[in-house]
Structures are given as C-alpha cells and as structure tokens.
Design a binder for these strands. Structure first.
Lengths: 194, 194
DNA sequence: CGTCTATTTGAATGTACTCAAAAGCGGTGG
DNA sequence: CCACCGCTTTTGAGTACATTCAAATAGACG
C-alpha cells in the first residue's frame, strides 16, 4: 500500500508520532480502480472518503434531463467523496468514477470518526483541507457567475494544466458548464481573438 | 456582549468547560454595524471572521464590468468572512457589508490560531462548520449548472424563506446569477405556470 | 418634498442551447 | 492487421433564454 503521498499531505499540516502514523495507516484500505469503474453511484450511501494516489477520479451529478455536471476532478494528492452523503449518512446524489486507471486509499466514515477521537490532530488536518476546498468552490462559483464560457475554459486550463491533455472535451464542458457542442464550436472559431 | 447564540452553535458540536468557554469568549469582539456599512472592501486583507448575532451581512464580489455577485448571505447564527484572504493573508477580492442593522462577533485570525492551539476542540467545531459550508456551496454550484433561472429563484426562496421578504430583488438577482431586469420580468410574467 | 436607488417595461441583441447529421477516433474481435 | 462498432467531436440551422440599453415609474429615506 502506497501511503507516502498521503502522509506527505498530512505532514504539511500536522506532526504525528510514528505510532499515530501507524494507527492512522491501519484504517486505510488501498484499492485499484480501472478506468470508467464506479466508486459510488447516485442513491448509494457514501460511507467513505477517497484519497487519490495515482490516476484520476471525478464526481458528478446527473440532472433530470440526463446531463452530467462535474463537481470535481481529483488528480493524485486530492481527496474526493460525496460530502453531503457522508455527513448526513443518507443516499447521495453524486456519481464518482475513475477517468483513468487509478489507485486510491479509502477510509470509512466510522473509522474517520475513530481517527478524530483517537488522534485529534486530524481534526486540524481535515479542517484545513476542507477550508481549501471551500475556497476553491467559492472561487469557482463566482467564476461561473461572472465569466463567459471562453473565460471559464481558460481559467480551467490554468487550474488543471496537466489534466487538460488527457480529458475528453466532453468532460471539460461538463465542468465549465456548457454543452459539448458549444465547447467544440468555441475552440474551433478563435477567429475573433477577444 | 451577546454571545449566547454563538455558544449555542458551539455547543452543538463540542463540549467546553466553563473555563474554556470563558477563554474563548475573551477573544471575541462585539460590534454593531449599520445597514450598508462595510466590514471589508476589496483589497483589504481580511484578518477576522464574523459571527452574525443579529441582522444580516452579505459577501460579494464585483466583476470587471461592475456587476455584483453575491457569494453568501449571513443571517443570525452564520459565520462570514473572506476565507481566501484569511487563509493566504493577502488582500481579498470580496466585499462584506450589512444589509440590515446588525450585531456581530469578530475574532482575529491570530486569535483564532490561539484558540486552535489552546482549545483544540475548536478544530473540530470549525471543521464541521466548514464541511457544512462546503456542502452548501457544492450544492449551489450544481444548481447553477443544472437549473434554469426560475428554478434557481424557487430554490433560493426555499433556502432563505425569511430573507426573501426583506431583501431587495436586486440582491436576489445577484445571488442566483441573473440581471435585476430579467428577474423582474420573470416574476411579473407567470403567464405560463411551468 | 426632492433626490437617489430599485423596479418595471420594451425592443434589439447575443450567447449558448437544441436537434440533427456527418466525420473522426479508439478499442475490439475476427 | 483490418473492419466494425460505439462514442466523441465537429458542423450547421434554427431557437431560446437571458442580457443590454434606454426610459418610465415607483419607493425609500432624509
């Protein structure tokens, strides 16, 4: 089990003793996921959080017309899950799948609670991680309201420069909030520069 | 200083000794704000977090064309601040002002750090508060991508039933992401019911 | 009351969507 | 190794939702 990437992330914000580290790791389960395979589907109760070691996952919802909307891409080093389902312990509204062959570390909600009570420093770690996620989503929301589709695309390219190359356009469209058709037209008609 | 509302919120997630409570309260500063007065403006470095005791605040950004986009309304019992500026300690991009005469409790970033180290339970409190905020923003983002303006308006009414009455339409428009003109037309042409 | 801002209304415009169909691309099996 | 299948991307024409700009009206506040 390759936990070094996660321990690096943890070490950025808190200091653990070898024993604490050991106990934390004992709660983790490693899992390989093949491209296009699901971690959860809508209606499942999400009882775990996933840390991406290698590959890339995504979470998305499907609206009543069948259109997908990407909530998050999770490259290596990122956490992903259906936070709402995790918190409420009720069936979620998100799908989470692998967009590449991936390796992830899972921790169950119940074990996470264990971690919080036995190694309180993790409250801090996840507080900070969550704050950063919150800031990112706030920023994205503002962007969605104040930028044009073209600007959102450019902003996306800046944010995920590595992802942009291996993601199908369709996924990018579902992230920035336009139809695949429109994104295609936009990219092939740079006639007017601004 | 009216701290009972905040202590209620804290007590929902953690248990403090009287001494801890006392120490926490000693970090808070009470402040009254008159309607339309600012807590921060764009470019300020936000060094504090605000808890609304009474009244209502809002945070918003102004895009390059001068349009306002509301990030958050904060009725009594809610926290508000420019999280990004608070985390990075750099000038923020948000404006925060009172939309009603309000009473708030402020805590400085530096004091918050003190609270975290001396009363570690607060890591938990703010982790949970932040998780809830994250979930709310994720939900709103998905809504912005998958719902029509009318549906976003209805969703807003459900979320803030009390606010809806005392907020100018313009503010609601700036929250759901449409122009005030369009919202006005939408509300006055319910000809077609669906 | 008078001023300032919010709301309404209308006409013209634009950005992005819908639907449909063709073309491209990648993986799979023969 | 090639042919085929399914999915993604492209392209076009028509449309719709929402914006822009302008001006009139209504409300709020001092």
């Amino acid at each position: 089990m390759n936990v070094s990437r996660l321990l690096e992330s943890v070490a950025m914000y808190i200091s653990l003793t070898p024993d604490e580290t050991q106990r934390f790791v004992s709660f983790l389960k490693s899992r390989k996921m093949r491209k296009r395979h699901f971690l959860y589907q809508e209606g499942d109760t999400n009882t775990q959080l996933a840390f991406v070691v290698d590959g890339c996952l995504r979470s998305y919802s499907v609206d009543r017309n069948g259109f997908e909307h990407v909530l998050q891409f999770a490259p290596p080093g990122w956490w992903i899950g259906d936070m709402r389902s995790l918190l409420t312990q009720r069936p979620g509204t998100l799908y989470i799948d692998a967009i590449d062959d991936s390796e992830i570390l899972l921790i169950l909600k119940s074990d996470l609670e264990q971690v919080y009570t036995t190694i309180p420093q993790f409250e801090r770690y996840f507080r900070i991680i969550t704050e950063k996620a919150l800031i990112a989503f706030q920023h994205r929301l503002i962007g969605n309201m104040s930028l044009s589709a073209k600007e959102r695309y450019e902003s996306f390219c800046r944010l995920y420069p590595t992802l942009i190359q291996r993601l199908p356009q369709k996924q990018i469209a579902a992230y920035i909030g336009v139809t695949p058709e429109f994104l295609s037209k936009m990219l092939n008609q740079p006639a007017a520069d601004k």
